[in-house]
């Protein structure tokens, strides 16, 4: 433990570096996946192509992608952007499927009724479909967040600072404390992100929270709850 206390500075700076690699990948991954997922939910052809592409991208080994990105984009090998781009590729590969499922989960009844009230196409997307896809999108972002934080440790293999540095350094020196420190830090960071994303979701989707509460309360009193329009 004394090693941990004497290296708090290093742990903190590695954590910040790790966060700096991950956050843009998660945010951009979300931003790219939402329109792609929406497209996939509207057209069976697009769905087939996009999801297959996602699967193929996801099978590329992490280390290969981190090495490949600078070659393809012509960036210097030690640029952290390489890692973020590689993480972005994986994030999109996972998130497109979630986003497609999220938009497919929006009840056709609700969508049809909203159209009948006079929502225009863009209004329907921003005010009805996107918010209603929210819970499934949120679940997707949580998976992406955890997977991105764990994947970002490969940055250490190409000499870019991250929490992965504790693994490579610890292995080279056969120093278990350092490896465990890295492991715990990654787990803690992933947990913090997960809680933060959950809180953002609760703040943005109060209807989802209350509905769940009410059905849970009703279930505990065994009062029959009338079903909503959504099926």
């Amino acid at each position: 433990m004394s090693w941990v206390w004497s290296h708090l500075d290093l742990i903190w700076s590695s954590t910040l570096a790790h966060v700096a690699l991950c956050v843009p990948a998660i945010v951009l991954g979300f931003a790219v996946s939402v329109p792609l997922g929406y497209w996939a939910s509207r057209s069976a052809g697009a769905r087939g192509v996009l999801l297959t592409l996602g699967n193929i991208l996801y099978t590329i080994p992490g280390i290969a992608l981190v090495v490949l990105v600078p070659v393809v984009l012509g960036l210097p090998i030690l640029n952290p952007v390489n890692v973020t781009i590689a993480l972005l590729v994986y994030a999109v590969a996972i998130m497109v499927r979630s986003a497609a499922d999220a938009f497919a989960s929006v009840s056709a009844d609700v969508r049809g009724s909203a159209r009948a009230q006079g929502f225009s196409g863009p209004q329907l997307f921003w005010r009805v479909e996107l918010p209603l896809a929210g819970p499934v999108l949120l679940a997707g972002v949580r998976v992406v967040s955890v997977s991105t934080i764990s994947l970002a440790t490969v940055a250490a293999l190409v000499g870019i600072p991250s929490l992965g540095g504790f693994f490579t350094d610890g292995f080279q020196r056969s120093f278990l404390t350092e490896i465990i420190t890295g492991l715990v830090a990654v787990l803690l960071l992933a947990a913090v992100f997960d809680v933060a994303i959950g809180l953002i979701g609760r703040a943005l989707m109060p209807w989802n929270r209350r509905q769940r509460l009410s059905s849970a309360a009703a279930a505990s009193f065994t009062i029959p709850v009338p079903q909503t329009g959504g099926r």
């Binding site: 009844d109 009724s113 909203a114 009948a116 009230q117 209603l132 909503t228």
Partner: peptide, 15 residues
């Protein structure tokens, strides 16, 4: 927008 529409299962916006 100038015609009222009511459907089965209400079709209300759940959010």
């Amino acid at each position: 927008r100038r015609i009222g529409y009511v459907m089965q299962n209400s079709g209300l916006l759940p959010h």
